[in-house]
Every structure is written in structure tokens, then in C-alpha cells.
């Protein structure tokens, strides 16, 4: 209530203070994230355009159905659910690190930043496994009347429509799918993965600075807050990557 009143009575544009009541760095982080949202948006919309222009597009449930150490078990979307959950949890630990920073609780910041870094590394490891599995996991498809084993890469896509009559060791055999699938998948999840990687590096730097007491000497933990904004944005982008590539 008191805050609402201060808000009403302050002349925000009279100078000498931030009219948005945030420090410069945080404001600029917000505007950077907005521009980054447009970058990711443009990539995803480009993917959508190409997907809408195709008569056939692979079903994500068939492409993403593997789980580490589960052999050939058909587990659609299980692994990507785990990745999503890891990223949500690491976002929560980041919120708690920022919260500890507000209270100038050095040990709390250190503890939660360590968990956030672990979450980020876990996500990257999962993505590495998924990429390796897609690229090296070969499937027999009919190309020019001949059965050929191909993996999913930026130039090859074994996830096409079923071939008319062919069968291979009792299995139905497919034909190559739209080549754009691999390019967009590796391009966009790669760009997101690179954001996660840089987020992990930033978080490690924040962790070292917190341990060294840099923020304690400054008297505030606002840097953690800015790194936190970036980290949440990475989680936010994953919501849409997850939506566009795995769910619909």
C-alpha cells in the first residue's frame, strides 16, 4: 500500500532518477532480451513458414522417442520432458539465488547458484546425447528404389512418408522426408543450446564473484539479478522451442 502511494506521488520524469525505477544495467538487459526474443521469433517463424509449405512433415512423437540406456524402447517425448523439467527446476533455483541476493545472504546465493550451474550443465549434456542419437541413429529408407541407411542431419532426413509397397525385414519402410527438418532442428536447438552454454558461463562467473565476496563489498547482489533475467529468458525460449519442435 505504501509502495503504491510512493508510486503515485513520485514525479518519475523530473530527472535525477530512473523513470522506470530500475538501474541502467537491468533496463538494458530487458531490452537485450526483447531483441533476442525477436531473433528467436524470426527463426521459429521461418521454420513455421517452411513447415506450412510442405505437404508432409515428420511426427515428433516418432522422431523423438529414444531414452538413454533404454535401447529401442518406444518412449515418445520422454527424454525431452526430462530436459524441460531440468530447465524449469534450474530456473527455480535461479529465482531462489536472486531472492537470497535481495537479502544479502551470501551462503544462500552460493548454494543456489551451484544448483543452477549444475542444472544448466545437465541440460547441455542431455542435448548432446539427443543430437548424437539423431545424427548417428540410422534408419533404412527407400532412395531411388534402393534401401539406404541414413541418420538425421542438416542434409538428410529419414523421417519421410511411408513407401508404397516396400517392406524391410517385416518393417514398413519410409522415404526421405523434407530436408529442412534437420537444418531447422539443429539450427534452432543449437542456437538455444548456445544461449544455455553462455548462461552457464555467466552463472559460473557470478558464482566465483559471489564466493570471492565481490558483491558483499559492493553491498548488493544486483549482478545476480541480471544474470538471472538472462537465465529465465533461456528457459522462456525453451518453452517455445519445446512447443514448436516436440509438441505440435
Amino acid at each position: 500500500m505504501a509502495t503504491a502511494q510512493t508510486q503515485m506521488q513520485t514525479k518519475w520524469w523530473s530527472g535525477g532518477k530512473s523513470p522506470f525505477n530500475v538501474e541502467y544495467g537491468k533496463l538494458m538487459m530487458w531490452y537485450f532480451l526483447m531483441s533476442d526474443a525477436f531473433t528467436f521469433g524470426a527463426f521459429l517463424i521461418s521454420y513455421g513458414t517452411i513447415r506450412f509449405s510442405q505437404n508432409y512433415w515428420p511426427d515428433p512423437n516418432q522422431v523423438f522417442n529414444a531414452f538413454p540406456l533404454a535401447g529401442h524402447a518406444n518412449l515418445p517425448l520422454a527424454f525431452v520432458s526430462l530436459m524441460t523439467f531440468i530447465l524449469i527446476v534450474s530456473s527455480v533455483t535461479m529465482v531462489l539465488a536472486v531472492h537470497a541476493g535481495h537479502k544479502n545472504d551470501k551462503q544462500g546465493v552460493i548454494k543456489w547458484m551451484i544448483w543452477t550451474v549444475i542444472g544448466g550443465i545437465a541440460f547441455l549434456s542431455c542435448q548432446a546425447w539427443e543430437w548424437a542419437h539423431l545424427i548417428t541413429g540410422e534408419h533404412a529408407v527407400l532412395i531411388n528404389g534402393e534401401l539406404t541407411n541414413i541418420g538425421t542431419t542438416v542434409t538428410k532426413n529419414p523421417w519421410g512418408p511411408a513407401a508404397d509397397l516396400a517392406s524391410h525385414e517385416g518393417h514398413h519402410v519410409g522415404t526421405p522426408g523434407p530436408v529442412a527438418f534437420g537444418g531447422y532442428f539443429f539450427g534452432i536447438t543449437g542456437f538455444h543450446g548456445f544461449h544455455v552454454l553462455s548462461g552457464v558461463v555467466i552463472n559460473i562467473i557470478m558464482l566465483i564473484m559471489a564466493i570471492n565476496g565481490n558483491f558483499e563489498r559492493k553491498g548488493h547482489y544486483w549482478m545476480i539479478e541480471k544474470a538471472g533475467l538472462y537465465w529465465h529468458f533461456v528457459d522462456l525460449v525453451w518453452v517455445f522451442v519445446f512447443l514448436c519442435f516436440y509438441l505440435i
Binding site: 509502495t3 510512493t6 518519475w12 535525477g16 530512473s18 525505477n21 530500475v22 538501474e23 544486483w222
Partner: peptide, 10 residues
Amino acid sequence: AGSEITFHHE
């Protein structure tokens, strides 16, 4: 940095 902010969120 401190003077930029008029009030802090609780």
C-alpha cells in the same frame, strides 16, 4: 546506482 532507484521492492 543507488540513487537511480526511488524505492526498492520488498
